[in-house]
């Protein structure tokens, strides 16, 4: 055995680290690109959850910078996210619009009654067509939409205080300053 053989474990380990680093880059769920980035919100005609006879369209998303939040009652993480959304609304007054995705409207209203409703309004997307057009993978997912109704950012997963303060807030500020 050569003296260098004691270095074998070091090389094996280095190999594993490189592999992990690659795997790590590949699997980052937050790096999902959105093809809709910098495109206007796709056209839709869907009812309002709280006023079923009212039809909402993409035009209703314009006017001010808003968060478009995809949620559902079957999604446990949405409950976890709900507290943060409430906090965001009550501290910043930011307009938050819900997309109730693949859900039962009755259950959705009960859910909002129980947890509170910081949203400006909810788009009922019972069959998931809007979510498909938005390129949604699952709930929760949140888009930042500027005053012109253009998608500027997409966040997959729960919006935490950290995400909001470090990523979304500067972006929203820029968008507000621009308009």
């Amino acid at each position: 055995m050569a003296k260098q053989s004691v270095l074998i474990p070091v090389f094996v380990f280095a190999g594993i680290v490189v592999l992990l680093w690659f795997g790590f880059q590949l699997s980052d769920p937050h790096l999902l690109p959105s093809q809709k980035l910098n495109d206007p919100v796709p056209e839709f005609e869907l009812p309002n959850l709280m006023q079923v006879d009212q039809t909402l369209t993409a035009a209703d998303l314009t006017g001010e910078v808003s968060l478009l939040n995809v949620w559902a009652t079957w999604c446990p993480s949405c409950i976890a996210e709900h507290g943060e959304l409430t906090r965001i609304f009550e501290t910043t007054g930011l307009r938050i619009i819900g997309v109730n995705y693949n859900d039962d409207s009755e259950a959705a209203r009960a859910w909002l009654k129980r947890w509170g409703d910081p949203y400006a309004f909810h788009i009922v997307d019972e069959s998931g067509t809007l979510a498909i057009d938005l390129g949604v993978y699952g709930a929760p997912e949140t888009f930042v939409v500027d005053a012109g109704g253009v998608i500027r950012y997409r966040h997959v997963g729960v919006v935490t205080q950290k995400v909001f303060e470090e990523t979304l807030t500067p972006l929203i500020q820029n968008l507000k300053d621009a308009s």
């Binding site: 769920p29 999902l32 999604c75 446990p76 699952g138 709930a139 929760p140 729960v158």
Partner: peptide
Amino acid sequence: EKYMPPEVA
């Protein structure tokens, strides 16, 4: 339930 299987995504 949060995410889809990565393959499907």
